[in-house]
Design a protein around this nucleic acid. Structure first.
Lengths: 173, 173
DNA sequence: GTCTATAGTGGGATAGAC
DNA sequence: GTCTATCCCACTATAGAC
């Protein structure tokens, strides 16, 4: 029954963060919309950063599990599963990429770089050539852009073509 | 002779913005590094936003000219020229994408959407199918990511493969 | 063209009552 | 769990002397 106050705070905060950016959203705005006062937030979260972190965490955990638990396998299936992963989290991804510098304390820049390297390793092995890394960047970055730009379309109108384009960028057979 | 104070302010500001984000950089930091005081900046720029705008402007003008003055032509050449365009501006693009929400007052989100639509029109005509728009997003977004992620490599080590991957994503012959 | 001094604002955060 | 009241801080911006 996660409709307690803590969850409601997170829901409102996520909505405001996505709409207008993390930096542009104050605790005041969040508490106002909930009909409570600013200090009340501090009963549920130790700090503003703590609140932001709690919203980004599910995405981070999902991606890290994806990159860590997967073995080498069919590249096309990997692209499909990766697309579904970022599609599930596309709202938080919008929030993240639009405000990366505001989330600097989470080291997201560095960590994203690490995730991508792991996925490239699944595609091309531990020592990919520069050309392979470039192709993988077009493929993975392009799919991310699709999940963001076509966020309002149904998944099955976007995924097949996005995966097809990414596979072509990778020069998959 | 653009080594006057105004240009030096812009150079220092751009460097700090790229390094640590726009929102995370204060006028104080900029003036300190220049060895002048904060109010001195206001002699050269009407406001903080005005300074930021002056740094983003060259990129915006270049892209808008690119999208506006070009006719339909060879798609691969278009990809090549587009890549060189974003490569030239990759530092400011890093700054922009890492802090999009801080630049909300410049309407960059909306305008980027418009630029991309114009370039897609050059590739696929005025009424592209959804599939064409998805493929174009993978191609153009993927190339942008490359310009950012491989910013330290020489152009001719990145461009050929990035363009090749983008062309494949578009399903070009 | 640059300074000193300061106004004015808004944010995050805490103390302590209820 | 939520409130009132308040602190402290950093920032943008302006006024006015030099």
């Amino acid at each position: 029954m996660p409709s307690d106050t803590k969850s409601r705070i997170q829901a409102v905060a996520r909505e405001l963060f996505v709409q207008q950016g993390v930096q542009n959203t104050s605790l005041r705005q969040i508490s106002d919309r909930l009909g409570i006062t600013k200090p009340a937030l501090y009963y549920h979260f130790a700090s503003r950063d703590d609140l932001v972190r709690s919203i980004v965490e599910p995405l981070v955990e999902d991606i890290e599990r994806f990159a860590a638990t997967r073995g080498p396998g069919d590249a096309r299936v990997l692209l499909e599963d990766y697309f579904e992963l970022i599609w599930r989290h596309r709202e938080v991804i919008v929030m993240m990429v639009r405000d990366l510098s505001a989330l600097g304390y989470l080291d997201l820049g560095e960590r994203m770089f690490g995730w991508r390297r792991q996925i490239i390793a699944l595609l091309f092995g531990d020592e990919p050539t520069t050309a392979q890394r470039i192709r993988a960047t077009v493929a993975l970055g392009g799919m991310s852009d699709c999940a963001v730009e076509f966020a309002d379309l149904p998944l099955n109108e976007v995924k097949p073509t996005a995966v097809e384009a990414a596979a072509a960028a990778l020069a998959l057979p």
